[in-house]
Design a protein around this nucleic acid. Sequence first.
DNA 1: AGGCATAGGCCTATTACCTCA
DNA 2: CATGAGGTAATAGGCCTATGC
Length: 325
Amino acid sequence: MEMSVNARDQDPHGSLGLGLSLSLSIATAAAPLELPPPPPAPAQRGISVAPISSHPAPPQPQWWNGAGHFFSPASGMDRSLEREHHYQQQQAAFHGHEMPFLRGIDVNRAPAGGESRTRGSCSEDEEPAASSPNSTLSSLSGKRPAATRSGDLEGDHTLRAGGSDDEDSGAGGGSRKKLRLSKDQAAVLEESFKEHNTLNPKQKAALAKQLNLKPRQVEVWFQNRRARTKLKQTEVDCEFLKRCCDTLTEENRRLQREVAELRALKLVAPHQYARMPPPTTLTMCPSCERLATADDAAARRPAPAGPWGPVPVRPVFVDGPARRS
DNA sequence: AGGCATAGGCCTATTACCTCA
DNA sequence: CATGAGGTAATAGGCCTATGC
């Protein structure tokens, strides 16, 4: 079975269609096979890409790719439009930065004055919309300079209660410090991620303000969270494909046995063979209306693509981050 | 209109630190 | 107490799109 993960063909960022490409590969390479229906968008993710007015995309299947994006296989909607649409929907969801899940949560102590500041703060995070052409932060090929990158995260970091709250033990100047988010912060971020797994700048700033974090920290958390989700989905997909492979292997064996039996019968009693009804395993492909014969399986040649037979339903990872037991 | 530079976002891979068994 | 594994915050670099000139 050919398994080509060619997500880059679909999405230059490699973020799209892992499940899609895997499913397509298995479908085309190992018929008879029924493609599982595209998994419905998990409601808790709260993101859907409906055609927007400027790009009236025809109704097409949009598959959740497990990494936080919906992929419209043949739609002309580019990523930026999708992202912009995400923003619009998320803005609506936020009700002007009203985030209900933030209410009633005691988010750490105030970072002001007495909070641990190990290094200088980052100007980017003090001005979340640092789009000024004069911004020194963006002077290096559109990236944050490494110097400020390394320092910008530690200014307002809120340490978990009971953590190593030794801001003065800088571990030798240049070494970065691993600071964990509090449970409350993580919970709020998780709730936010369930609603929308990407943030626009305003949402990021609002969330960061509510959590006493740097916007960059929120951004990093979301990036890592998306990566974890995708990794989990990949693992789920691998298991799914293994089951598909097992199913197809067994089906292939069964068909080959059947072919052998039929051939033997044809040799022994051709007149009886001629009166036999078609094998029960014959299947009409609904898409191409071609009859799948046992020879297809016997010759190991890929039958025309189309939904042929039962396969396990592809699962979609919906859980949160893995927790050590 | 097309090219170029810049800014900013996201992704992936990796590092480094922290926690826990 | 030491240690290794796992989790994850953070970094680095690349690619893409949007925007302005």
